[in-house]
Amino acid sequence: MKWSQFFNTSIGKKLLVGATGLFLCSFVIVHLAGNLALLKEDGGEAFNTYAAFMGHNGLIQFIAWGLKIVILIHAVIAIQLTFRNRTARPVKYAVRPGNKTSSWFSRQMAIMGSVLFIFLVVHLAQFWWVMHYGEIGKVSYGAVTEVGNLYEVVWFAFKEPWIVILYVLGMVALAFHLIHGFKSACQTFGLNHPKYNGLISFIGVGFFGIIIPLGFAVIPVVIFFKQIS
């Protein structure tokens, strides 16, 4: 089988969704680690310095563009598979088993993924676009001069209750997507072994499903309450 045929099979496409999904999983770890600097009340020094470094390092810029392409590949192939799966059952059942035979999370992947996609569009427009192409105030910290004050933009955005709610909902969708997504990607790559299944579940549910989304969700909530008090 040629690679072109391979990636046109159902398994080949699933492998692309899984590989891009795992890449995105590794991205969210790095992204969260950097974002935690937003919680420092240092006038934005740590966060803005970090954001300026990310914005100017060539390799990181390359990865950042790759990331947007990866999200698109992931979403497009996943949606394509979802439609194919829908047409595989033209007449639906009158009675369905609900959660008796599969987990709720595992059946909501396309929905949660789509919510995430909408969230990502809003999120990128709000911060990434403004940082790169919009009007942004400049600040200097000692050796670091004239960097964009993204810290201020973020703090300003999270004064607005509905934006905070949107971010929390986005992270709920991320949690639900990854509770099944990480385990599912491992299975797609053939990683299913009694010695490691416990660990895979723990990482998928505990780390990607709870800790990471919770870490992200805490940021807008804390910033909101700090500003109203």
């Binding site: 496409k13 992947m109 599912s184």
Partner: peptide, 9 residues
């Protein structure tokens, strides 16, 4: 047939 989404059903 559709593709697998590892639901386990």
């Amino acid at each position: 047939f559709g593709s697998c989404t590892n639901t386990g059903a």
